[in-house]
Design a protein around this nucleic acid. Structure first.
Lengths: 188, 188
DNA sequence: GGCCGCATGTAACACGTTACATGATTGG
DNA sequence: CCAATCATGTAACGTGTTACATGCGGCC
């Protein structure tokens, strides 16, 4: 009963939630996820699902009604246990703390750009973030709160996070103007 | 001029910001980072820095004053260019959107737990998140806004993100009580 | 003097990405 | 009928993790 990776946990979760489904459906779900952390490439998904099957956490049978030899996956009791265990692991401090924000990371090092490039970076990021926020808000509107309330809350989380990032970046942008002026003065 | 990985970008950034520094200092920085995404293990840092050196993005010389044969790294002009390029890459949509929140992911799949386990998970996560928020707020208080304003804004971002996560989870916890009651009623 | 932290590195291993390979099905 | 998508998989490659290995420096 080794620990599930994040990808394995998500895959097990999908198979559990969406009943019998194909590996391809798992791939599609990962691809369409708002956090682009999940690429859902064939080279990761298929071997990973074979791993789960070898461990007895999912079962599969070939769908006879499909000429493409498509497989139908189902979670096993063992898999349900592993899934529950994986969810509970999320309470440990390391998993709680680990949010890596690429914009934040880059702002941390923005001092190594020229003042002009700094403004440019912030403007472009701001535009891209706002675009992302808009799509996230659309997805939330399109999600029915009653059908799957947990999915809805996850969508809401994405929106709230995006809003905070936008607000924070706006504040930073304001401050950046003043900082850059100070920079110029000190080098005069 | 291949694209830098996130780890390589951060490492270049540190070497650029902290002047001549040892590989070990880079490791320490990664280890102490609030986002536990960066483990800073020896097996990743040393080979990665050798890679940067082979590409001519950093230079190193052995510190003669140290008996441990410690190396001192410095960023090169080529490295500065690569760093600037890496920062600007952050404006593309994929890098903007990619925030993966382990709690959110687990909430999405929380339906596969028993109602009792759901509450347990949320309570534990809530406690851990609050603890994390407290340390983040402390770090922000300990950071001087004038010494390195960019580092300060990064710290502020961590705090704001953590606060939103706490508020969101509190809202979810409230809703979970009602949802669980509905669950029970529907199975009665 | 001994332990902990500094300091560097290597080797086996696991896993994800990219690219390749193949073929069925569906819609215009 | 032809293209896009469905559908499954493999192989090479890069890179991060864990564990191992070594030795100096400073502090109690």
């Amino acid at each position: 009963m080794s620990k599930l990776s994040e990808l394995e946990g998500v895959a097990l979760g999908i198979v559990s939630r969406d009943g019998p489904c194909t590996p391809y459906a798992v791939r599609k779900f990962l691809k369409s996820s708002p956090s682009s952390h999940w690429q859902g490439s064939a080279g990761s998904v298929y071997p990973m699902l074979l791993r789960l099957e070898q461990r007895g956490q999912v079962q599969s049978e070939i769908d006879a009604s499909d000429g493409r030899g498509r497989r139908l996956l189902q979670i096993t009791a063992k898999g349900q246990k592993a899934l529950a265990q994986w969810i509970h692991q999320g309470t440990t401090t390391e998993l709680v703390s680990s949010i890596s924000d690429h914009i934040r990371t880059r702002v941390f090092f923005i001092g190594s750009l020229s003042p002009k490039e700094r403004l440019e970076f912030v403007e472009k990021s701001f535009a891209a973030l706002n675009e992302f926020l808009a799509t996230a808000e659309q997805r939330l509107r399109d999600t029915d709160r009653n059908t799957d309330p947990y999915a809805w809350f996850a969508c809401e989380n994405v929106v709230l996070q995006a809003r905070v990032r936008v607000e924070w970046l706006a504040g930073f942008q304001k401050a950046l103007g003043k900082l850059t002026k100070l920079d110029k003065r000190s080098t005069e």
